[in-house]
């Protein structure tokens, strides 16, 4: 996940099961990955960074400027992510060979 701020402020999150995270990392780094290690955390964080970077470029075309914070990767067997109730949220699932990935965007328009 990665926070951003500016004309719009929010969080971008990529959610995926371990298996999908390892497949994504393998493709991104061009190596075999068989456990959730630093490489996977870095890779998924980097994906969030790149998606948010794409968002930044697109928003700039609509004269909205945002700045990105740093990506954080959260892993574990069982956890929940809770966000501000008043924010708007869009979650898009993506299917790939290894399984499914969710891209979640949560945002509020800054004053």
């Amino acid at each position: 996940m990665l926070g951003f701020s500016g004309d719009i402020k929010g969080m971008l999150r990529i959610h995926c099961p371990d298996r999908v995270a390892m497949a994504i990392t393998g493709s991104l780094l061009g190596m075999e990955v068989d456990q959730i290690d630093d490489d996977v955390n870095d890779a998924i964080g980097e994906i969030a960074n790149m998606v948010a970077g794409g968002l930044k470029v697109n928003l700039a075309k609509h004269n909205k400027s945002i700045e990105l914070s740093i990506p954080t990767a959260i892993g574990g067997k069982f956890y929940t992510v809770h966000s501000l109730a008043r924010a708007e949220r869009v979650t898009i699932p993506f299917a790939m060979a290894a399984g499914q990935m969710l891209v979640e965007l949560e945002f509020v328009s800054a004053k």
Binding site: M1, G3, F4, S5, G6, K9, G10, M11, D38, N41, D42, G45, E46, E67, S69, I70, P71, T72, A73, I74, G75, G76, K77, F78, Y79, T80, V81, H82, S83, L84, A87, E106, F107, V108, A110
Partner: peptide, 20 residues
């Protein structure tokens, strides 16, 4: 300097990692 919106993560067991 600006802040994003906050979130909370909780659970039985989780890890938190970031770069750099």
């Amino acid at each position: 300097i600006q802040l994003s919106i906050p979130s909370a993560v909780c659970g039985e067991e989780y890890t938190l990692d970031y770069q750099p």
